[in-house]
């Protein structure tokens, strides 16, 4: 069954006629130059924008799903975390349980997964950009939603936390969840199941990363020449 299905999603001026289907358990990446519609696509997938087409979660049209249930079925992480009020890290992560009646399940686990235990009682207004990003990711994890939609989760993270986040993403999809996230670092793409390339608001390519990321496509979409060379390799110990 498809965890997420977009059918001819269109937002005037931002996204044109994008269709895609993610089978459950897929780790999928969304790439494209700045302004190519990645964030818009994720917002549509999360049911936050009227799609001008059809969006389905696990074969259910999102428009038919009551608001309160949506919080249990899909989690969305915005690109930029901005906090006006000084909630503690723990209380922001606990908001992920709102749709579950604030039962507090899995909050500690989510904090631990994103290395936030030491910061748990600190106000979110006193965190760095990368720390704020991890708080929102932990909140998304705490929802325990089967569909996870993350907008550039790695952009603000240091290399260790980025690798740990990728590893966690992989373990989530192994556990049956489906994850779609946007990214800029194409070197990460090789570890994904599926890659979607957006260009000027349209779906330019979709498929396994190895078949999608051809030198011709990289030149056309991103305007860069690709070559493979021995490089600095970074792994978690």
């Amino acid at each position: 069954m498809n965890a997420l299905e977009l059918d001819h999603a269109t937002v005037p001026g931002r996204l044109t006629d994008v269709s895609l289907a993610l089978p459950a358990g897929t780790l999928a990446g969304l790439v494209g130059p700045n302004g190519s519609g990645k964030s818009t696509l994720l917002q549509i997938a999360a049911g936050l924008l009227p799609p001008g087409g059809d969006v389905q979660w696990a074969a259910r049209p999102v428009a038919d799903i009551p608001m309160a249930d949506r919080g249990r079925l899909a989690a969305w992480v915005p690109q930029e975390a901005r906090f006006e009020f000084g909630f503690t890290v723990r209380s922001v992560v606990a908001q992920g349980r709102f749709a579950h009646g604030d039962d507090g399940h899995g909050v500690d686990d989510a904090l631990a997964q994103f290395d936030l235990m030491a910061l748990a009682e600190r106000p979110v207004t006193r965190l760095s950009g990368g720390e704020r990003q991890r708080v929102l990711l932990a909140r998304a994890l705490a929802t325990d939603a089967p569909l996870q939609l993350w907008d550039e989760p790695l952009a603000a993270l240091d290399v260790r936390h980025a690798l740990a986040t990728l590893q966690l993403a992989r373990s989530l999809t192994r556990g049956g969840k489906t994850l779609l996230f946007s990214l800029h670092d194409l070197r990460v793409a090789h570890c994904l199941d599926l890659l979607i390339v957006l260009h000027e608001g349209r779906r330019r390519a979709i498929g396994p990363p190895a078949t999608v990321l051809t030198p011709a496509l990289l030149l056309e979409v991103f305007g860069v020449r690709a070559s493979i060379a021995p490089d600095l390799m970074l792994q978690l110990p």
């Binding site: 936050l48 608001m67 249930d69 989690a75």
Partner: peptide
């Protein structure tokens, strides 16, 4: 903490 965020959490 944000309208879109709140909606995605089930508000």
């Amino acid at each position: 903490l944000g309208a879109d965020e709140a909606q995605s959490l089930g508000v």
